[in-house]
């Protein structure tokens, strides 16, 4: 009943889910315009993509995209799971598993984006 109340901070998670959802859509539109309609189109080459990814501004944008996507996605999975899970030990297990998966996605993703050089 108090899943999204102010008392346990749930309302902030609910708000963050909306905020990241909105920002992800904005970033997705930028991504589609730049990557698929302006640059190369069908003919995406390593040089073309690498030149973009190697710039600091795109590293920031791609990292934000990754962090928000991971949060929005895994929090979404937790929102679904918590509808059905009643046992406390199972909640702890699922949250731990999701945090681990988030750690793997963010580590691999950020290691791909941040140190990238052409």
């Amino acid at each position: 009943m108090h899943k999204y109340s102010y008392k346990n901070g749930g309302v902030y998670v609910w708000f963050l889910q909306r905020l990241t959802g909105f920002l992800l859509l904005a970033l997705l539109l930028v991504h589609m315009l730049v990557e698929h309609f302006t640059l190369g189109g069908h003919e995406l080459s390593y040089e073309l993509v690498a030149k973009r990814v190697a710039t600091p501004l795109w590293k920031i944008i791609d990292s934000l995209f990754l962090v928000m996507g991971t949060f929005h996605g895994l929090n979404g999975v937790w929102m679904i799971a918590s509808d059905y899970i009643k046992k406390d030990w199972l909640k702890v297990t699922v949250v731990s598993a999701l945090l681990c998966l988030g750690g793997v996605i963010l580590t691999l993703g950020l290691l791909t984006v941040i140190p990238f050089k052409m």
Binding site: T70, G73, G76, V77, I80, I105, L108, G109, L111, T112
Partner: peptide
């Protein structure tokens, strides 16, 4: 949503 988080995981690995 479930399909998309599945895709994101694979996408990060592919992009790597």
């Amino acid at each position: 949503g479930g399909a998309l988080i599945f895709y994101l995981t694979i996408h990060v690995w592919v992009t790597h």
